[in-house]
Design a protein around this nucleic acid. Structure first.
Length: 743
RNA sequence: GCGCGAUUAGCUCAGUUGGUAGAGCAACCCGUUUACACCGGGAAGGUCGCAGGUUCGAGUCCUGCAUCGCGCACCA
């Protein structure tokens, strides 16, 4: 008893030192095993049949280090997790990392280029993959240590990686099932080709950027009757028709006529057709149809049975034309063609416009729509094993049935709107880093030459390779990283095996993630879970916003306003960083971050420290005791007031309003408990009225214990450290201490 | 073009079911013989973006507008 108030508390006499405390405390937690719900049950801190709380960590990309946005996510999720654990729930927060196929591969390619002036083809697939894997391993290690620095109470024993063998097995199993159900198919279609990354990407990975451009109006030749407009004259060598609106009387006289013209040295055959998709008011009201390089044109071409003529290749270079065009980049060919139009007197108008240019999310390359043979997921095919519902319907149902709720609610409509406009998902990527597509093609030897990727080849799809493997060649492509990410809530729990974890923790209770990946990830998880196991992946979605700088700008290297979580943790302590990230951060809204704010909460940690010093030194011999009843009337009022605060806080915690709770507890402890109650207590404690003295001392101790407990999910390090000094009998670690109840 | 969000003190934001506007930071004045200067006390600071409407009463509900930001679609 005596030691508790003297030796142990010596450190209270110097200011709180997060650096000395945090790593030591985290180690204590890890060694306790309490991050793992099984250990909590084993050691009797959680009942075996208790309600569960489960959540996966949105796996950070192994592309480098964590930024302050990740820190913010970790804090919100850790608060959820610690609160659930302190409520006695069987609490699982499951960590992992994402291989992030394109992002990681292009990062390593950049490093290779910069440091060794090499390309990936110089190394070959196998050697290059070794480089990527070692890079990914380094990133992983950094990320893990960063997650620990923040104080995340996450179950490392269950850590997963989207590209590890278990997840790979899950991916192959899922692919095979979808293939057998006819949901995965191979099709020749217009896709988003990224010439820089040399791969196809999905519609969602295309970022439309506003740029200044020119809008040209011209005729193919002097004797062609109709003028057309375009921003991309170089594609016009691939035109096969001119389409007009069927009601456009300016042009109906030409309908059905066909013309042979030579456009900048390239002979083209143009048919005049009518199609509803053409708007009369746009441009000249006539559209030059380029089926190979425009999605809309391809649709028109299919309706009118027009041929497709590819004129641009994978390197965004021209495939046709004379010496002046062929082999040139599209942008250079454009200049040549415009110049030709001008000298021929065919150019009628040249207008400056702003247009949105499709670019690739990861590489920034300008997307070239190209016809290619790729793998797709059909979102409109009825599935017999799922009541003949389509994937689209399976993705919408949980929202309509309210088996999934989204916070904030307004994102439900964003989600629904996206699903309704969803088109088939292109899942194959021409990159090396990722899950190899589990499809093999029967080798065809033609003139002693091996033919692969031929549309008419015999196909084998299986979880495992075909037995006579020597006669087969595996598809060289890998899967969109979001395919494996879509399985995350259950692949991490052991699926396709029917594990105990899967039974116990799926569907997960909560998905906490950024609103910017609602389509990429949230929607795909719902798709996969609904289809593969017939249940939702999670019951609640909490979407956080972006962390911006003090002026509300996005953090970026070029602005130099990036706050590195490790830097500020080093400077102010993890608890202070956590508080600053949670207060003023409602779901769905972007939040602002500044060092001033962090500093304020560093002071708060020290304030708690000093409050503890005062309370312990002025209540010597008094232990935490909820049975004490001999309170003075004025203390009874204080207790009622505090009970009211706990009640509100508990309710707001259950409603995930952490930003309110953080501020409320901060206000109470500082402005109320420290500034008023403690000041008033000084004369009482030093008085000779034993009854009043004991009453107040008991109140101070009990309330301090409660404050530290309630604050634990927010500021776990300093509270755990203070807890170790508090006069509480039979105490365990604060992280598994029961949340205060008041009925 | 369709939709969403924001607009409250100098800055960053709270403000739950409508009931006399709150906090942090910054700035101002005062204070240091022990819980804490990583502090305490005090004062100052807002026609809640604009215009209407509903109501006894609107920061809060309804309509319109403005500015900023975001998403989706179009982009021949």
């Amino acid at each position: 008893m005596k030691e508790e108030h003297t030796d142990t508390n010596l450190k209270l006499f110097s200011p709180y030192n997060p650096k000395e405390t945090e790593d030591r405390i985290y180690k204590l937690w890890e060694e306790s095993g309490f991050f793992n719900p099984d250990v909590c049950i084993e050691k009797g801190v959680t009942k075996a049949d208790a309600e569960t709380f489960s959540m996966v960590l949105p796996p950070p990309n192994v592309t480098g280090t964590l930024h302050i946005g990740h820190a913010s996510m970790l804090v919100i999720e850790d608060i959820m997790t610690r609160f659930a654990r302190m409520q006695g729930k069987r609490t699982l927060w499951l960590p992992g990392t994402d291989h992030a196929a394109i992002a990681t591969q292009s990062k390593v390619e950049k490093i290779l280029e910069k440091e060794e002036s090499k390309r990936k083809s110089d190394l070959g697939r196998e050697e290059f993959l070794k480089r990527v894997e070692s890079f990914a391993q380094n990133s992983h290690d950094t990320i893990v240590s960063q997650i620990k620095k923040i104080g995340a109470s996450i179950d490392w024993s269950r850590e997963a990686f989207t590209l590890d063998p278990k997840r790979n097995f899950a991916v192959r199993t899922a692919f095979k099932q979808m293939y057998d159900d006819g949901l995965i198919y191979r099709g020749h279609r217009i896709v988003n080709w990224d010439p820089k990354g040399q791969t196809v990407i999905s519609d969602d990975e295309v970022i439309n950027e506003e740029r200044k451009g020119k809008f040209y109006t011209f005729k193919y030749s002097a004797d062609f009757p109709i003028s057309i407009s375009t921003t991309r004259p170089e594609t016009k060598v691939g035109d096969v028709a001119v389409a007009i609106n069927p009601t456009d009387e300016r042009y109906t006289q030409y309908l059905g006529k066909e013309y042979d013209v030579v456009f900048c040295g390239v002979p083209i055959h143009i048919k005049i057709i009518a199609d509803e998709a053409v708007e009369k008011e746009f441009g000249t009201g006539a559209l030059g149809v380029t089926p190979a390089h425009s999605q809309i044109d391809a649709d028109i071409a299919i309706r009118h049975k027009l041929p497709t003529k590819q004129v641009i290749n994978e390197y965004a270079k021209m495939m046709v034309g004379g010496e002046n065009i062929i082999g040139k980049k599209t942008t250079d060919a454009r200049i040549t063609i415009v110049e030709w139009l001008r000298t021929e007197g065919l150019l009628e108008k040249e207008e400056d416009i702003t247009q949105s240019v499709p670019t690739a999310e990861r590489t920034g390359g300008i997307i070239e729509p190209l016809p290619k043979l790729q793998w797709f997921i059909n979102v409109n095919k009825p599935i017999s094993t799922r009541d003949n519902k389509t994937l689209k319907e399976l993705m919408l149902a949980p929202l309509h049935e309210k088996s999934i709720t989204i916070m904030p609610e307004r994102f439900e409509r964003v989600y629904i709107n996206w699903i309704e406009n969803l088109r088939d998902w292109c899942i194959s990527r021409q990159i090396w880093y990722g899950h190899r597509i589990p499809v093999w093609y029967k080798k065809i030897i033609n003139n002693k030459e091996l033919i692969i990727n031929n549309q008419n080849q015999e196909i084998y799809c299986g979880v495992n390779p075909p037995k006579d493997i020597e006669n087969w060649e595996q598809d060289s492509d890998t899967l969109d990283t979001w395919f494996s990410a879509g399985l995350w809530t259950f692949s991490t729990l052991g699926w396709p095996e029917k594990t105990k974890d899967l039974m116990d923790y799926h569907p997960t209770t909560m998905l906490e993630t950024g609103y910017d990946i609602i389509f990429f990830w949230v929607a795909r998880m719902i798709l996969m879970s609904q289809y593969l196991i017939g249940e939702v992946p999670f019951k609640n979605i909490y979407l956080h916003g972006l962390v911006r700088d003090a002026q509300g700008r996005k953090m970026s290297k070029s602005l130099g306003n990036i706050i590195d979580p490790l830097d500020v943790i080093e400077k102010y302590g993890a608890d202070a960083v956590r508080m600053s990230l949670i207060i003023g951060t409602g779901p769905g809204n972007d939040s602002k971050m500044s060092e001033d704010k962090i500093k304020a909460y560093k002071n708060y940690a020290n304030k708690l420290w000093n409050i503890t010093r005062f309370v312990l030194s002025s209540t010597e011999g008094i232990k935490y005791n909820t049975k004490f009843t001999n309170y003075t009337d004025s203390d009874k009022i204080l207790i009622t007031e505090w009970d009211e605060v706990i009640k509100t806080i508990t309710k707001e915690m259950e409603e995930y309003k952490f930003y309110l709770v953080g501020d409320k507890i901060y206000q109470y402890t500082w402005a109320r408990f420290a500034d008023i109650i403690i000041e008033e207590s000084k004369p009482i404690i030093s008085s000779t009225n034993i009854e009043a003295k004991n009453s107040r001392a008991q109140f101070l101790i009990n309330t301090l214990v409660n404050i530290i407990t309630i604050l634990h999910p927010f500021m776990p390090f300093v509270t755990e450290e203070i807890w170790s000094m508090l006069p509480v009998e039979n105490k365990n670690l604060l992280m598994v201490t029961v949340w205060p109840k008041n009925d």
